[in-house]
């Protein structure tokens, strides 16, 4: 009797609730203080480019180009540069283009990748192992290798300088099929088998049982694909010329050559372009960090 009661607390003690983010309790406090100091200094250093860009953007053009350089301009801060950039430039249009194309790329990628991953995980169709092998092998193909033939292809389809040219070639993410398949593999089949017996179709099972259980991985994939599409430079740079169709990263490159030495306006444009994702990040920090850590190792 006594031997039966003793092991119980022992079992629960051996599986303690997860300690907050790997905190090692027994670290000597001195080491932790030193580590905090080092990390704090580095974190401040890491923020310097943001801070310097912000200070520059808030100066007048004359102050921005004055020597010796100062963190606090004598004539005070001004929003002139932001007003000029927003008033004359295409930044609002480019922001829209970036949001629209990145959202479309993310949506299409999610739909086609999840459907394919589900079939590969669950349905015994002929050729599926070959298909999975081809998809995994294709991870090795570097996108820059495809830009020349893709440009030719888009040109012969008459799609250069359209949203189609921006979206269509960017929806294939073989690593994401792999990541999703791994997740679907872990969902117990029993959950679906009951519904199959009741005569529910595959698509219905997929949308009503599998997808709701897969929200975390779908969010992770969506975040990863969205960031990649938002920041992609090379392909949009080639696929679009017309100013009204440029995405933010490409538009910013044209600004750089146009504004030349107007440093305050350069920095104001850069900050405006950085703003949307930084704001999204501040709101969804936890999900984004988890998403990147989850999908990151599967490659880009």
């Amino acid at each position: 009797m006594a031997t039966q009661t003793i092991p119980r607390p022992a079992v629960s003690a051996s599986t303690p609730p997860p300690v907050a983010s790997g905190a090692r309790r027994r670290k000597p406090p001195l080491a932790r203080v030193a580590a905090t100091a080092v990390v704090a200094v580095l974190a401040v250093a890491w923020l310097v480019p943001f801070a310097w860009a912000t200070v520059t953007a808030l100066k007048s053009e004359t102050e921005a180009a004055a020597t010796p350089i100062t963190w606090l301009p004598a004539s005070g801060f001004t929003l002139d540069a932001f007003a000029k950039v927003l008033g004359s430039g295409n930044i609002p249009t480019w922001t829209f283009n970036s949001i629209f194309t990145s959202a479309a790329i993310t949506a299409v990628t999610l739909v086609i990748s999840a459907l394919a991953a589900y079939a590969i995980s669950r349905i015994n169709f002929r050729g599926k192992n070959v298909l999975m092998g081809v998809i995994v092998a294709s991870i090795i193909i570097p996108p820059p290798v495809l830009i020349i033939p893709l440009f030719q292809q888009m040109q012969s389809l008459g799609l250069i300088d359209t949203y189609w040219a921006l979206i269509l070639p960017q929806v294939i993410h073989p690593p994401m099929v792999f990541v999703l398949k791994k997740f679907f593999d872990q969902i117990p089949r029993e959950l679906e088998e009951a519904a199959l017996m009741d005569g529910a179709g595959r698509l219905r099972i997929f949308t009503t049982i599998v997808l709701p259980l897969s929200r975390p991985i779908l969010a992770a994939v969506a975040i990863f694909v969205f960031i990649g599409a938002w920041n992609n430079f090379l392909w949009p740079f080639i696929a679009t010329n017309e100013s009204s169709l440029l995405t933010l990263p490409v538009g910013l490159q044209t600004i750089k050559s146009a504004y030349g030495i107007q440093y305050a306006q350069n920095m104001a444009s850069a900050l405006l372009a950085a703003l949307p994702l930084i704001v999204v990040f501040l709101f969804f920090q936890r999900q984004i960090i988890k998403g990147v850590a989850t999908t990151g190792l599967a490659g880009t």
Binding site: N231, F233, L248, L252, M267, S269, A274, F281
Partner: peptide, 9 residues
């Protein structure tokens, strides 16, 4: 999270 262009600027 920054585009390459922002980093370059």
């Amino acid at each position: 999270l920054l585009a390459s262009t922002v980093v370059s600027l």
